[in-house]
Amino acid sequence: MKIMDNVSRREFLKDGCKLASACMILNVLPIKIPNAFASDEASATQAGLEAKDGYNWGNHYYAYLIDTRKCIGCGMCVQACSRENNVPDGFFRTWVERYEISERGEVFVDSPHGGINGFEATNPGFNATKAFFVPKMCNHCEHTPCIQVCPVGASYATKEGMVLVDSERCVGCGYCVQACPYGSRFINPITHTADKCTWCYHRITKGLKPACVQACPTGARKFGDLKDEHDEVRKILASERIGILQAEKLTKPKCYYIGLDKEVR
């Protein structure tokens, strides 16, 4: 086509329509455009995620189970987490909440220093008829809002279903901290980047339990792999009545709870 000096509006619109419909047809055609963001096994081996110690991230899908009926509120999990991950003082990747509920429906919730030093007797005047502890942490949600809001791709989900933060990418904008309905994230005062529970990714990829699970003396915290047929957590999830936190948010959390109360959120 030669370059024309004057194109009438009519011709311009006609050509434009032709071009647009051509584009639409091209789009429908089954042409595979190489996708840079597709994960493939070959590159997984390259990154050392496979083969190295026989660890293959495609063979795992993790879940966490918390039996609140067994929790004694000793806070050893919080202490172990803090030591294992070098969490700065006053910030918590996991914490324990204490709920005390009276007959009249008054609710008292506290978590002194995240429960890192355990719990003292409190509320002498408060006549609790129902009381329990609820350990909390990142739920590693399947449909998580924290990844959606990250502008730089610092928060991401791995193939094992974990949500991790790349502290080198993170610019510390704090959108994810606000997006998380569970309050699991914080801005680390030392690195100034978003920080949260990783289910001890450095431990589980070596075949160990997360530090909090190991520290729990009563078995209130359990960590499992849903792709393992003989896994304890998988069996419990299949046979017991399980609750999740804030189900109405539709984030599909992967921390499952036994013995939740309606007051817990």
Partner: peptide, 20 residues
């Protein structure tokens, strides 16, 4: 490499030393 994130971060996260 694997998605909308830095692929090598996975290896970095795994490489952290075990404390307990």
């Amino acid at each position: 490499q694997f998605g909308f994130y830095r692929g090598t971060n996975l290896a970095e996260q795994q490489a952290k030393s075990v404390v307990h």
